[in-house]
Design a protein around this nucleic acid. Structure first.
Lengths: 125, 125
DNA sequence: ATAACTGTATATACTGTATATACACAAAAA
DNA sequence: TTTTTGTGTATATACAGTATATACAGTTAT
């Protein structure tokens, strides 16, 4: 399981794991019904405690991305694709909104932001 | 001092205060040399502890936005305008970068993001 | 049965955020 | 000059979030 964590980050480890797995589910790299690595194996892999991986999985379950069955494992849930897309759109919009607020205070123009977007997104159509 | 804090936010109170004062300094609503409200009066105003306002001011000092003189007060520092602008540009770029990452995973197009930017920034030139 | 795998629960520790309250210095008022 | 009132500072304390090790309990294949 390709997951990268940073201990020095101010973002908690369980949160880092949660977000990365969420990304894999949304991008369909992890498909519905598929089993996630066990909390133990993932913990060993990342050299952290089982409690931390459990914490991450609990968060995913609370948000409806996975379902866990005691003594069996944790599996990717069937989640409404449209709802996920809406959630992601909302996230992107919030980030841009924050960026715009900062930009306006600092007199950073819309053109400058558009240019950043172009560069960061790439020139793909 | 127009500062709004939310206790229910996951962002610490001292951080909320810090960011809002920083904004006022950057937008020149608070001018170099001007005295900030005392940690006591601000604490009373916001109905929080002096320690929390002190914590906020300490953060601002560490970042070079203010200078504090014991028993006298805390004052807006002279900070290099170009450096501040660079910092803000960096912040905006990081936010857009995060937004782009999420967008790509969720197959949100550049056009959708451009449209968000247009709407959120407004139609001003 | 047993071995090897799942997730769960308990007890513990550390760090960040926040508090009340007592302290020390500066400046203005009496 | 003495007192009062205004600054920021330091100490002791509490609570919540994050993380840990370790013991527990159920499932599956041998």
């Amino acid at each position: 399981m390709n997951i990268i964590i940073s201990n020095s980050s101010n973002i908690p480890i369980y949160e880092q794991i949660k977000e990365q797995i969420k990304s894999k589910i949304i991008s369909n790299e992890l498909k519905a019904g598929e089993m996630l690595p066990s909390i133990r194996s993932l913990a060993k892999d990342l050299r952290i405690s089982v409690i931390t991986t459990k914490n991450a999985y609990e968060g995913l379950e609370k948000e409806g991305y996975v379902e866990t069955i005691a003594a069996k494992g944790t599996y990717v849930a069937n989640k409404n694709v449209e709802i996920i897309r809406e959630e992601q759109l909302q996230k992107v919009e919030n980030l841009i909104d924050t960026a715009v607020s900062i930009a306006k205070i600092s007199k950073i123009s819309k053109e400058e932001m558009q240019s950043m977007l172009d560069i960061l997104y790439g020139e793909e159509k």
